[in-house]
Every structure is written in structure tokens, then in C-alpha cells.
Computed example of a mutant assay.
Amino acid sequence: MPTPDFVLDLRRRIGQDPLSLVGVTAVVFRGEKVLVGRRADNGRVQCVSGIVDPQEEPADAAVRECLEEAGIVVRAERLALVQTVPRVTYANGDQVDYLDLVFRCSWVSGEPHPADGELTEVGFRKLEELGDLDADHVRRIALAMAEDDPAHFEGGR
């Protein structure tokens, strides 16, 4: 899915200056496997993620992103991690500061496929097959694995 309209509207007003956005990461489990996909824009392998729309509940955004990007229906089960990520500067120069909300999700139905062009490949992998994930996404998966653990909050200790 392309950049949301509300972000494009903000960009027309502020240009490429840093923009604070709320993002979600969906760590989706299907049995002993986790959903990962290869991003079309930078080739990195990671969990499904996206931007929360205005007035959208973050858990609903995680569910929506899985349907839009991977063509699957999931259920958001719990918040696993709240963190800010280092400032992202996109190829066009736009700068974004994300507050990332990581949700543990469970697969409900559908077979994963690159549904909207944001991913070039997507599927469920065993945990031992995640060698090409960056350390941050491995950590997100690790924190989401425990079904009953409370959410982890960065900072504010």
C-alpha cells in the first residue's frame, strides 16, 4: 500500500522535516512458525509492519496490515513491546520518528502471499530459519513469543 493520504497531506505542509508517527509490528505465529516477509523497498526480511491511521486502534492496524501486506487474517492477542526506533530517513529524504507498538498475533486464516506490493515474498518460517532477520526484529519476536508476559516498555525504567 502506498504512503497513507494523511501522511502525504502532512508532508505537503512540513516538507521532509521529522514527522512523528505511530507504527505497528505484527509478530504472527502459526504453531511453531512466525510470519516474515522481504520488503520491496529495501530487501530486508522482517515482520509485517505499518502506520496506524488517524482514529484507528493500534491492534486493529496490526490486523489490517497483515491482511493488506500478506493476505492473511490474524488476531491481535497482546501488546509485547513499546519502543521508539531510531529516526528513519527514506530515499526521498523524508524523515520519520516512529513509536512502534509490537503485537503478538495468531494466524486465523489464509495463505500468505505478497498482497499489495510492499513485500516481494512472505511466509511462515521456523524460528531456526530466521538467520537473515536483523537483531531488532529477532528481539521483537522473542518478546512476543511468551503468551502471558506483560508488555516490555523501553526507557522509563
Rank of each mutant, 00 (worst) to 15 (best):
K33S: 06
V108W: 06
D94H: 07
R104D: 05
G31W: 00
C105P: 00
E32H: 07
V48N: 03
T25Q: 15
V34F: 00
D17W: 12
E68S: 13
G23N: 09
L79I: 10
N42K: 00
G93P: 14
D97M: 07
R12T: 13
G71I: 02
V22P: 15
E65G: 10
L35E: 00
N42S: 09
V34T: 05
D94W: 04
V96H: 06
L35Q: 01
R104G: 01
L79C: 06
A62L: 03
P58M: 03
R87L: 15
R78F: 08
R30G: 06
D100M: 13
L79T: 08
R78P: 05
R11S: 08
V27Y: 00
R13G: 05
I14W: 13
R44S: 13
Q46F: 11
V28H: 00
E65V: 11
G43D: 02
P18G: 05
L79W: 02
A76Q: 08
G43N: 02
D53G: 11
V27R: 05
R39D: 11
A76M: 04
C66Y: 05
L99P: 08
A26P: 05
T89H: 01
W107G: 07
V85Q: 11
A40Y: 02
V63C: 13
V24Q: 04
R13V: 09
P86V: 08
W107V: 01
V28P: 02
P58F: 03
T25I: 13
L79S: 05
C66F: 04
T25P: 14
P54I: 00
A26C: 06
S20V: 14
E69A: 10
R78L: 09
R87W: 01
L35R: 01
A80W: 15
V22T: 12
S20G: 12
C105N: 00
V73E: 07
G31M: 01
V96C: 08
R75A: 15
V73S: 09
G43F: 06
S106F: 01
S20L: 14
V82P: 04
Q46N: 09
G37M: 06
L10P: 04
L101Y: 00
V96L: 08
V45C: 06
W107Y: 01
R64T: 04
R12L: 08
C47I: 03
E57R: 15
T25L: 14
R38M: 07
S20H: 13
D94I: 11
A62K: 10
R104M: 04
